[in-house]
Design a protein around this nucleic acid. Structure first.
Lengths: 154, 154
DNA sequence: TACACACCCGGTAGTTACTCCAGGGTCAAG
DNA sequence: CTTGACCCTGGAGTAACTACCGGGTGTGTA
């Protein structure tokens, strides 16, 4: 199997396959006399696994860890649970902020009914106003402290 | 106002402020005799605007465009509408795939009840199996065609 | 006066996960 | 013998920062 065929079979771009090889996720395949990479079914399986993990938005570093578990089935799988839990937490956090974001954008979009100049555009007004009134969460709690203990100046 | 104060006031990292300046989003401020950047209220406002747009996950390129609209209020705001619409579409697409992702991870997490070795881990089995059975959408439609019109070979 | 410490400077390099490009080699069909 | 599909390596580019380096500045305190 050459790289193009492997790519077609797994829906992975050729450049990406070579990238995975360089990154140490896909073992270096044998080479034909002409120097072309020659892949076997094991490579296909492994690449499909990587692809699937990536579709689940698991980072390459974590995919690497998972591949090590696959290679060493005697290891404790509690770590796998943790990895998935962490992934789930990240996804949920992003999901939340995305939902907030969507509502904000919809509200924003509702501000403008088009057909006029930017000067009166509700969207721009809204954005500028929001920027103005923005409460800065980092001021309310957990400030990194210093910023020079000065009395008054400038 | 020095860069640290501006950063505190807007919740933006100092390095990020300098980055925005280099990227042309924040105008170069005046300098004190010692070379320190000296910001005024206009900078604060502008940075807050950028910050807010970024919180809405608007790309820096698009923020730049918005800033141009702010600077030229006589322009047609139809373009702003388009920009926000595009943003909304992107957010919604990501939202969808995130939701699918979350369900998949939850299902995955349910496969393993911990306390055993990775060899019998349901999560790993599931991932490997899913990778195996993965239907490749790109095969079903819109193949980029060639892959050499060959008869049969290795 | 000396020191520590917070703050600032510019410039460069690193991050993630690719993606693209240049410049070249290989191989089968027409 | 040319065309076109395919492959190779190595390097650069992407977004939006983040981190680090070596060094300069300014002030409160011992």
């Amino acid at each position: 199997m050459r790289i193009g065929e492997l790519g077609q079979a797994t829906c992975v771009d050729i450049e990406t396959i070579r990238y995975y090889e360089k990154a140490g996720l896909l073992p270096e395949p044998a080479r034909n006399a002409n120097g072309y990479r020659a892949y076997g079914p094991a490579h296909l399986e492994r690449l499909a696994f990587i692809r699937h993990c990536r579709a689940l938005d698991i980072s390459l570093a974590d995919v690497k860890r998972l591949l090590e578990f696959v290679a060493h089935p005697e290891a404790d799988c509690g770590d796998i649970d943790q990895l998935i839990d962490g992934q789930l937490a990240r996804v949920r956090a992003r999901l939340n902020s995305m939902q907030v974001l969507e509502r904000q954008l919809v509200a924003l979009r509702g501000q403008c009914d088009s057909g006029h100049a930017a000067g009166e555009c509700g969207i721009l007004h809204e954005l500028v106003a929001a920027a103005h009134g923005e409460a800065c969460a980092c001021h309310l709690n957990a400030v990194p402290e210093p910023l020079r203990t000065r009395k008054r100046s400038a």
